[in-house]
């Protein structure tokens, strides 16, 4: 069991990321831990502003160095080839090492396909650039390779000489995907890759990612609000609330046996096929507190519908509890029970 778990590709331990702004310290990520195994898809869900993007950007060290600081925690990443493990939280954010990982071993696609490619260079130019950065190829070879990647994402061949503003949102997201996958990364971070697209295009992009994942054997960190996308793509899920990963487990565990009151609320707030349609959707009461506030103990206690009934004040220090294999929950209700 234990040796199996050591085969992780990326392991984030108790990551804490703060922004120093004029209004004060924004505690974007307080305590995030997750593990991604090679070739698997990790879903990361949570309400807007809970720190999903900041977590993702921390992995590639893309956060603004002037205002943002990784306070503590580690981001262990197993490199291609020699299996060496490095802590990305400690590397130089604009150094050679992280640049050789960006776009090469870890690639990223973003939410806004409209703005994520530069409007003044052709799609081909931008993809070829990514290829030439990490592979020793002649420009002509790189161009052929870029054309191949475009074919792999089902784009017509002549897109290579098009400017991005001439493509539709779905086409651009495909072009982005082609660029991200052009160096065969072992991890693809997809930050809400389908949010800006219509439903049909969404489904196409998801299908595309799934099939390319199988071909290239890469892991995906799939960030989304859309639990439907998670159910369809992810092997494991991490649920984030206010900068903390409050629960994580396999898709089956999370959807069938959610433990954290927040996860339960999140699942209740979306319509589900097969459930009695008469049941009304239940939004979680209250709203996410300001990320400037400092909260000791359980971050969800201000909105938690369960803890008062169960006599939990939420103020104790809490640690992850493994209630069943691979199913972790950060909730005092369970840690007390475990004790």
């Amino acid at each position: 069991m234990n040796t199996e778990r050591e085969k992780y590709l990326l392991k984030i331990n108790n990551l804490k990321v703060h922004f120093h702004t004029l209004e004060g310290t924004v505690r974007a990520v307080e305590d995030a831990s997750l593990t991604i195994e090679p070739g698997m898809t990790m879903g990361l869900v949570g309400e807007s502003g809970c720190g999903k993007s900041v977590t993702a950007h921390s992995i590639l060290r893309l956060l603004p160095t002037r205002t943002c600081q990784i306070k503590s925690g580690e981001i262990l990443f197993r490199r291609q080839g020699n299996n060496e493990v490095i802590d990305l939280a400690k590397v130089e954010p604009d150094g050679e090492l992280i640049r050789s990982i960006r776009g090469h071993e870890i690639a990223m696609v973003f939410q806004e396909p409209m703005t994520s490619l530069s409007p003044v260079f052709t799609v081909g130019n931008q993809i070829i650039e990514a290829i030439m950065l990490h592979r020793r190829l002649q420009p002509q070879e790189a161009r052929e390779y870029a054309a191949e990647m475009l074919k792999a994402v089902a784009l017509p061949e002549d897109v290579i000489d098009e400017y991005p503003y001439r493509l539709s949102g779905g086409q651009r997201q495909r072009a982005m995907t082609a660029m991200a996958l052009s160096c065969h990364p072992s991890l693809l971070i997809a930050d809400e890759p389908t949010t800006a697209l219509d439903v049909t295009t969404q489904a196409q992009i998801i299908e595309l990612l799934k099939s390319l994942q199988q071909q290239l054997h890469m892991a995906i960190l799939m960030i989304t609000h859309n639990l439907g996308v998670i159910a369809e793509t992810a092997d494991r899920v991490a649920v984030m609330y206010l900068g903390r990963v409050v629960e994580s487990g396999t898709v089956k565990q999370i959807f069938d046996n959610p433990l954290h009151p927040y996860t339960i609320g999140l699942l209740k707030s979306i319509p589900r096929m097969g459930s009695e349609t008469k049941k009304r959707l239940a939004p979680i009461p209250g709203s996410v507190p300001d990320p400037l506030t400092v909260i000791e103990g359980c971050a969800f206690r201000l909105r938690c519908p369960v803890c008062k009934q169960k006599g939990c004040d939420g103020k104790d220090v809490l640690d992850a509890v493994e209630t069943e294999p691979e199913h972790f929950v950060h909730c005092l209700l369970y840690s007390k029970r475990a004790r």
Binding site: G103, A107, A130, M179
Partner: peptide, 9 residues
């Protein structure tokens, strides 16, 4: 697209 360019390496 600046972040994209940085994310390329």
């Amino acid at each position: 697209y600046i972040t994209t360019a940085r994310a390329k390496g």
